[in-house]
Computed example of a mutant assay.
Amino acid sequence: MRVSTIASTLALAASGVQAQYYANQSAPFYLVLSSQNETLNGTTLSSYHEGAAIESFGLGGPLSTASVEYTFNYSIQSWQDPPPTGVNLTGLLTWELRGGNFNLSSPMQLSYTPSSNVAVPLLEPSDDGTLVAFDDENKLTILSYQDDTKPLPNYAVTPTYNWYVCTTYVGYLYQTLAWVVGNAEPQNPTCQKVDVLRIFK
């Protein structure tokens, strides 16, 4: 009996912590690519169907009123340590899946394959997701908390910007946003370096 009570308490605590990221929501915004590749530069990201209630970030063309909107769900209590310079809050990058009689919050979650260093960000209905942040220039970042490139890993909170556009296959073959794990070059030869900018409506 005591074990189940403890388990229930932990589950409630975990759900409460996660729910904090949904306590505050930014105004809607667009995600626009910045790249040295003129074909990609200025392109908006759009939600591409990959499977049942699963979307990736595909290329949506120039910024317009028809561009796909996203939000940033966060909590003012989301920091456990002092934030790095230029980054204010961590939270969940979210898209709303709309159906005939439902609206479902779909936060971004990186999807990894053990044989590749290229992860694909996916949007799926969930209470969980990959924590991201926006810096002072409105660039999308994922924070690194440990530098393991040295014999003794150092704890340091550092914004990282490992965004690329690559040809990926999750449910369909698309050109999508991708994240390269670590500090190596992407092993997928189609990948091209980009930054992802938040532009409010």
Rank of each mutant, 00 (worst) to 15 (best):
F134N: 07
T190V: 10
S111Q: 12
S106P: 00
E55N: 09
V17I: 12
N73D: 14
Q192I: 12
A13V: 11
D127Q: 12
T9I: 13
F134T: 07
P114N: 08
P114V: 03
I54T: 08
A133F: 05
S26G: 02
F29V: 06
S67V: 06
V132H: 06
Q109D: 05
Y74P: 08
F102K: 02
V196D: 08
A184E: 15
Q18D: 11
T176E: 15
W79M: 07
A13N: 01
N162C: 09
T149W: 03
N41W: 00
S26W: 00
A23Q: 13
T90L: 11
V118P: 06
G51I: 05
Y161D: 14
T65A: 14
A7C: 07
S35P: 02
E55W: 10
N162T: 07
N188I: 09
S47C: 09
L173Y: 10
A133S: 15
T176P: 05
L59A: 11
R2G: 04
R98Y: 01
S126D: 14
L152M: 13
S26M: 01
T5D: 15
N24F: 02
N188F: 03
N188E: 03
G171T: 04
Y112R: 13
D135Y: 01
P153M: 14
T5A: 13
Y161R: 15
V194W: 06
T5L: 14
P159K: 05
L110K: 10
N37K: 01
N162K: 14
P153S: 14
I76A: 06
G182Q: 13
A23W: 01
S111K: 07
A53W: 01
V132D: 07
Y155K: 09
Y21L: 15
T190C: 04
P159T: 09
A13H: 04
F29W: 00
P151W: 07
G42P: 04
A119L: 08
G51K: 12
I142Y: 04
L33H: 06
A178S: 15
T160V: 13
F134L: 12
V17E: 14
D128C: 03
S75W: 05
T141P: 04
V132K: 11
P121N: 13
T160I: 10
Q25M: 07
